[in-house]
């Protein structure tokens, strides 16, 4: 809720300038289970090996498997998830976790591995915004964002966050259904985007059944 006379700030207004300019490689698909996370992780690693400083955001809040694929699991359940916090407070910023030379931010670090996030679109957008702009990255060259399947709110947020080059890596499988879907998940025309070829990998590491965490609470310090 806004106080009278207070101007509405667009989502992403507080993203630090240096992060705002970092190119985004969005890994997307029209359908789930095609290997987006596999592709995201396996592109991040050789990019890093080539000398690029890579950030990997696991924006698939409902199946944050990128962290699990790299062997990072949070065993302790979370009692709440912080969506935003006042500047300067301990929970104001998240710290990227480095693994195999890739800096990572994931919802999997915010909740226990047996928990799941049952959040609606506006909260999901806030969380992804926090994962991208609220994380302290160490001098990254590019940000790979592993998106959830489809063309909903999180995808729209990522494609419009900041004035940066955005590249879309659309993953498909040799199936008529998934091949028919990539077009709708391409970024809107006003963003700078280039299509990359997709190399589908295995869809191993699918998320195990998760226990919903209720209620999801936001804390403000």
């Amino acid at each position: 809720m806004r106080a009278a006379g207070q101007q509405e700030r667009p989502l992403g207004a507080d993203v630090p300038a240096e992060v705002e300019q970092v190119p985004v490689i969005a890994v997307a698909s029209g359908k789930g289970g095609v290997g987006k996370t596999t592709a995201a992780v396996n592109v991040a690693l050789p990019l890093s090996a080539e000398g690029a400083r890579v950030g990997l955001v696991d924006a698939d809040l409902y199946g944050p498997d990128a962290a699990h694929m790299t062997g990072l699991n949070r065993t302790k359940d979370a009692s709440h998830v912080t969506l935003f916090a006042a500047k300067g407070t301990a929970s104001a910023r998240l710290q990227a976790v480095e693994r195999y030379g890739v800096q990572m931010a994931s919802a999997a670090f915010l909740i226990g591995q047996a928990q799941g996030l049952g959040v609606q679109a506006p909260i999901a957008q806030l969380l992804v915004h926090r994962l991208i702009g609220g994380t302290t990255w160490d001098d990254i060259d590019c940000l790979i964002v592993d998106l959830p399947p489809g063309t909903a709110d999180i995808q729209q947020l990522v494609f419009t966050l900041g004035k940066r080059a955005t590249y879309a890596l659309v993953v498909v499988t040799p199936s008529a259904r998934t091949a028919a879907r990539p077009r709708p998940c391409s970024p809107p025309p006003r963003t700078q985007s280039r299509s990359g070829r997709a190399y589908p990998g295995s869809s191993a590491c699918r998320s195990a059944r998760r226990r919903p965490m209720t209620p999801t609470s936001a804390s403000r310090s």
Partner: peptide, 30 residues
């Protein structure tokens, strides 16, 4: 490559990474 994959997949990911690296450029390019 950290998941189990055939060499062709590894080569494909490495090729894709090289193309992306060329596309995104370096910080001095931006």
């Amino acid at each position: 490559m950290i998941t189990r994959a055939v060499p062709e997949q590894v080569a494909a990911y490495e090729l894709l990474a090289r193309q992306l690296r060329k596309a995104i450029g370096t910080r001095s390019d931006r």
